[in-house]
Design a protein around this nucleic acid. Sequence first.
DNA 1: CTGGTCTCCTGATCGC
DNA 2: TGCGATCAGGAGACCA
Length: 301
Amino acid sequence: MPELPEVETVRRSVEAHLLGRVVRLARLLRRDVLVAPGDPAGGFSRQRGTRRSATPVSITPADLLEGATIARVQRLGKQIAIIGVDRSGAERALGVQLGMTGHLEVGRGEPATTHVHAVWMLDVGVLAFSDPRRFGSLRVFRTMSELEEHLRPLGPDALTIDPEALAQRLAGARRPIKAALLDQSVLAGVGNIYADEALFLSGIHPEARADRLSGDRISTLAASIRRVMSDALLAGGSTIRDYRSGTGEPGTYQAAHRVYGKAGHPCPACGELLRGSRVAQRATVYCSRCQPRRRKRPALL
DNA sequence: CTGGTCTCCTGATCGC
DNA sequence: TGCGATCAGGAGACCA
């Protein structure tokens, strides 16, 4: 389940192979993983009942960067954008959302993975997008301002979040802090694993109301988020099931998880058994002693 | 406007 | 060994 550290690891590993490469041929094997301008937002009409857009928007090879030279690979939160320059010198982008099980992988020949939905033949090497569950998607951005538009709703990147920005985004949020952290418009890049890890490090109960946190606690939380993100990034991310970098390397940060997936195990800080619950429809693990629902009232005088 | 719930999808795992 | 039920969750759609 790629979150910011995994996505950044993928970004770095594919960018190293893609810079300056020319896309000779782009092949889309499943139209429904692609979102094009004019498509209903969220993909291919994934509304109740039916799939498939009634009026599929036409896609050109150039929309998939065919003929372009790769200039850079950007990331904001969990969103990746591959930036290409076409023959006229104009920049355009292809967005990649990995979702739960998406993979972006560079290689020399045919990708070894199953569920491959798009392949790019480069002047040197091959890039492939695969995703068994298809929660991920590709997005066509014909101009850089279309990409900007898409990224605008996102909050600041979690890797560098500062307390002031976090406090500003949490002001007036009456929902549980964990729900707010998972909201990409509050903060971009945190998912279920790192939300639990950061809240544990901060000593904050996942159901604490976001707008009731003091400035001090928000500062602690911002520092915990930055620390968890950067430590996980240094470890190449967390490989729980099938996450791999853009060159097929697993991450190792799962060995450093303190609470995620450890309900019923002793708290690494105090030994109390970790509790499992659900917050915002997500499995949630926390220590009821280290992360009390209410702090003790500070002593008066 | 905010926040809660539903939905998409496949593979791993569990109980019988 | 087989098989149905359950769970995993990112993010847009939908609804109160």
